[in-house]
Design a protein around this nucleic acid. Structure first.
Length: 380
DNA sequence: AGACATGATTTAAC
DNA sequence: GTTAAATCATGTCT
């Protein structure tokens, strides 16, 4: 069904409008008779008065007493029915009601309507093809993706993105510290999320309200001038586009807020925190008990990381630093090495005592130091 | 404040 | 990819 037919289908149901009445020739004939010329002036004036009314007036007025079916659109009661519900004409100035009634019952109305239809057909032809199916805005897609990735839009996932969790995990320091930072970040992100969603909801509500206003107005006007469903669709699309540009601003500022939060969080992470005593002890124990080959395997690193509440790469950093610093100044670390050697020996003794076995635990470096520090490939 | 300790980063070699 | 080595940046001690 093309535009014109749709438009006309939409119009055929107009209250009291008969096809026979809309012969353009009859208009011209009547115009030439003098009296009808005044009629045309009247009716035009009335139309102007109605089209001058404010949106609020139109919205408040709701649906006319007669059948709303003349709009030619859906007869879904939910669609625009809200305004049309039980307030037909209520609360409006009497003169307005009179004017409207006079206009609708005017004997010239069908003729005028048909003239308007004719003009419309021409203009519809000329504007056809102007409307385009606009593709999804790449910028808004980018914003959407980022908001989704940051956990602002999309389903709630315990607050915070995977990136945030990783950042928190890498924050180092005691587990308590990192969890404090993490929860702080999560709380702030949740706040941003909440603001974003409430604003979005507000915009969506405003959009649908405004769309209803405009649709009601157009429906009302469709009684006095031809308006095709296609036109209403286009108008709705224009409104939606306007509101989506407002939404984009919201998304943009939300993204900005998240970026600021993240950069602050990362700055905090950048601040070096010394590992806690227990973590350093665990790492040193491993280092001095494997002094002949202080290169923990991936599995050993993972276990150490777990024990110390730090990441595997932090374990790697620690061993890297430790090896080089130990090698550079073995003398300085002698005391520390002794301490841990004793510690290891005592622990081992405890273990064997518990197992009621007198056998030596045979730790790689039990008692022995300072062992030369070799790299895995034999380098010194 | 300055020295030293220490975790992280960078660079180059493998 | 890992590692050594140098270096940076910050924490901690005096």
């Amino acid at each position: 069904m093309d535009d014109q037919t749709r438009m006309m289908t939409g119009l055929t149901g107009l209250g009291g409008l008969q096809q026979a009445d809309v012969d353009p020739d009859s208009v011209r004939k009547q115009q030439s008779l003098g009296q009808p010329q005044q009629d045309i002036g009247d009716i035009l004036q009335q139309i102007m008065a109605i089209t001058d009314e404010s949106l609020d007036e139109a919205q408040a007025r709701c649906w006319p007493e007669e059948s709303p079916a003349h709009w030619g659109g859906s007869d879904d009661p939910t669609e625009g029915g809200r305004a049309g519900g039980g307030m037909a004409g209520g609360g409006l100035p009497l003169n307005f009601q009179h004017r409207k009634h006079a206009l609708n019952c005017h004997r010239m109305k069908p003729a005028l309507f048909s003239v308007l239809c004719e003009i419309k057909e021409k203009t519809v032809l000329s504007i056809r093809g102007v409307q385009e199916e606009d593709p999804p805005d790449p910028q808004i897609m980018r914003l959407d993706n980022m908001l989704l990735a940051e956990g602002v839009s999309g389903p709630e996932k315990g607050g915070g993105s995977a990136a945030a969790a990783a950042a928190a995990a890498a924050a180092g320091g005691s587990p308590t510290d990192s969890s404090i930072e993490h929860s702080d970040y999560r709380a702030k992100l949740a706040q941003i999320r909440q603001i974003y969603h409430s604003e979005l909801e507000k915009y969506e509500q405003a959009c649908s309200e405004f769309t209803n206003h405009v649709m009601n107005l157009l429906r009302e006007q469709s009684r006095t001038r031809p308006i095709s469903p296609k036109e209403i669709e286009r108008m709705v699309a224009i409104i939606h586009r306007k509101f989506s540009s407002i939404q984009m601003q919201l998304k943009q500022s939300t993204c900005e807020a998240v970026m600021i939060l993240r950069s602050r969080f990362l700055d905090a992470r950048r601040k070096r925190r010394n590992f806690n005593k227990q973590a350093t002890e665990v790492l040193n124990e491993y280092f001095y008990s494997h002094l002949s080959n202080p290169y923990p395997s991936e599995e050993a690193k993972e276990e150490l990381a777990k024990k110390c509440g730090i990441t595997v790469s932090q374990v790697s950093n620690w061993f890297g630093n430790k090896r080089i610093r130990y090698k550079k100044n073995i003398g300085k670390f002698q005391e520390e090495a002794n301490l841990y050697a004793v510690k290891t020996a005592v622990d081992a003794a405890n273990v064997s005592a518990q197992a009621s076995q007198a056998n030596s635990p045979a730790t790689p470096n039990s008692g022995g130091y300072p062992a030369p520090c070799y790299t895995p490939d034999g380098r010194l």
